[in-house]
Amino acid sequence: MTHTVRNKQKLLGRVRRIRGQIEAVERALDEEAGCEKVMHLIAAVRGATAGLMAEVVEDHVRAHLVDEERYPGALNLDAADQLLDVVRTYLK
């Protein structure tokens, strides 16, 4: 079972919140809201999408690259944590 299946409900919840944020951008544009409001809404969508990507990447690394049961000694856990820190920072 892949990590996206194991965390399906959690991931779908995040996607649904992102959908709501996208709909808020659409409403703001439709209602001719000010540029500042629209930019803030778009920034929120970007942050939420980046957070979703970071979570999926982290789960992927932990499930497929450093799963000690499946791959004993496959990777240094500290190195994996350092990589994930860089990915999280990049995606912000």
Rank of each mutant, 00 (worst) to 15 (best):
H64N: 15
C35S: 06
L29E: 13
M39R: 06
N76C: 11
L41K: 00
K10E: 15
K10T: 13
V15H: 06
V56S: 15
L83K: 05
G51P: 03
Q9W: 04
G73P: 01
Q9L: 09
R17K: 09
G73L: 04
D59R: 09
V5S: 14
Y90M: 13
G47N: 10
R14V: 13
D85K: 07
G34K: 03
V15P: 04
P72M: 05
L52V: 08
R88G: 04
R27I: 01
E23V: 02
R16K: 11
G47V: 01
E68W: 00
T89S: 13
D67E: 11
A79H: 08
L75K: 06
A54W: 02
R19P: 04
A24R: 01
E26G: 03
V45M: 06
A74C: 07
A43V: 02
G47S: 12
E31H: 02
T49A: 14
Q9I: 05
L11F: 06
V5C: 11
Y71F: 14
E32H: 07
A63P: 04
V87N: 09
D30I: 03
I18A: 12
E26D: 10
R16F: 06
V87M: 12
D85M: 07
A79W: 04
G47P: 00
T4K: 09
G47Q: 11
A74E: 15
R6W: 01
K8P: 05
V25I: 09
A24G: 10
T2S: 11
Y71M: 13
V45N: 06
E32Y: 02
E55Y: 05
M39W: 00
Y71W: 08
R19L: 14
A48W: 00
R14W: 05
E58C: 11
V15A: 13
G73A: 06
T89W: 07
R70E: 14
C35F: 01
R17V: 08
E31D: 12
T4D: 13
N7W: 02
E36L: 08
A24S: 11
K92D: 15
A28T: 03
N76F: 03
A50E: 11
R19N: 12
A28W: 00
L83F: 07
R62V: 02
G13T: 03
D78Q: 11
D59A: 11
E32L: 08
N7Y: 05
M1L: 08
G20V: 02
H3Y: 09
Y71P: 06
A48Q: 05
R6Q: 14
L29N: 05
A33Q: 08
A79M: 07
G73W: 00
R27F: 02
K37A: 12
L91C: 10
H3S: 13
D59K: 06
H60T: 12
A50K: 02
A74S: 10
L75F: 09
I42P: 02
K37V: 07
T4G: 11
L83Q: 09
M1N: 12
E55L: 10
